[in-house]
């Protein structure tokens, strides 16, 4: 598989504070990459640099071979971003959200109409007309993902997509993520739910801006003689803390 994203010596400073410290990794096309780390480890900062929302301090990010810092407009077309908490406007209904996000993403009226018809076949139209804040979390998540996929992005960033939802909704969401993988999409997902990470092809653990673990979950468990990702995570963090 080819690398769709290459991150080289990536650093981000906010004043004197180093949020991301000279990290290197690649993401292969069609891969699910799990991004882990405590709050403040640098996960969201890294994601924001890759999708062009934040300027890098030093280093290089290549997406499809293009320099991410110089080709932001181009990159926006192939990237989708979704987070559980802030993706949709709660006081608009789902159709209005689709219209709004379709508009700002530069989709034509005709395409937006088509998308609205598409969602009506997936979700009860009555629910689609309720304000987003009032619809069940599982449906809200479905709509968020639908909005994120409207532009048919090649690379999808999911920033804590399963925070605050019950196990059933989380599971169904992962079934959808796997469908996206089958369709050839590349998926980068950050999460605090460590049991989910087993579904990723590879994981990265960040701590204090450093990349401290990288590898395939099963292989990492074997290598470190651990029974669960949670044990692996705890160990990696405390070792790094001591050093």
């Amino acid at each position: 598989m080819n690398n769709i994203i290459e991150v080289k010596n990536l650093t981000k400073k906010f004043g004197n504070f180093i949020a991301v410290n000279n990290i290197n990794f690649n993401i292969k096309k069609g891969e699910i990459l799990g991004f882990l780390g405590p709050n403040g480890a640098g996960k969201t900062t890294s994601i924001k640099m890759i999708n062009g929302l934040l300027k890098i301090t030093s280093g290089e990010i290549l997406v499809n071979g293009m320099d991410a810092n110089k080709n932001r407009k181009e990159l926006k077309k192939i990237m989708g971003y979704m987070s559980q908490k802030f993706s949709l406007y709660p006081l608009l209904n789902s159709l209005e959200n689709i219209e709004f996000f379709g508009g700002v993403s530069g989709l034509s009226r005709k395409t937006i109409k088509k998308k609205e018809e598409e969602i009506k076949n997936m979700v009860d139209p009555l629910l689609l007309r309720q304000n987003v804040k009032d619809i069940p979390p599982g449906i809200r998540q479905k709509i968020s993902l639908f909005v994120c996929l409207m532009t048919d992005p090649e690379i999808i960033f999911l920033d804590e997509p399963t925070s605050g939802v019950d196990p059933e909704v989380r599971r169904n969401f992962w079934y959808e993520i796997y469908d996206l993988k089958i369709r050839g999409k590349t998926i980068l997902v950050s999460t605090h739910n460590l049991d989910e990470v087993e579904y990723a092809d590879r994981i990265l653990i960040l701590h204090h801006g450093d990349l401290i673990v990288e590898g395939e979950p099963g292989g990492l468990l074997k290598k470190h003689k651990k029974n669960s990702i949670e044990d692996l995570f705890k160990d990696a963090i405390s070792n790094h803390e001591q050093n």
Binding site: P38, N39, A41, G164, H192, L194, E230, F233, K234, I237
Partner: peptide, 12 residues
Amino acid sequence: DEPTTGVDPLSR
């Protein structure tokens, strides 16, 4: 009320 939502696993 949801004291640990969005908090990392070790802090939880």
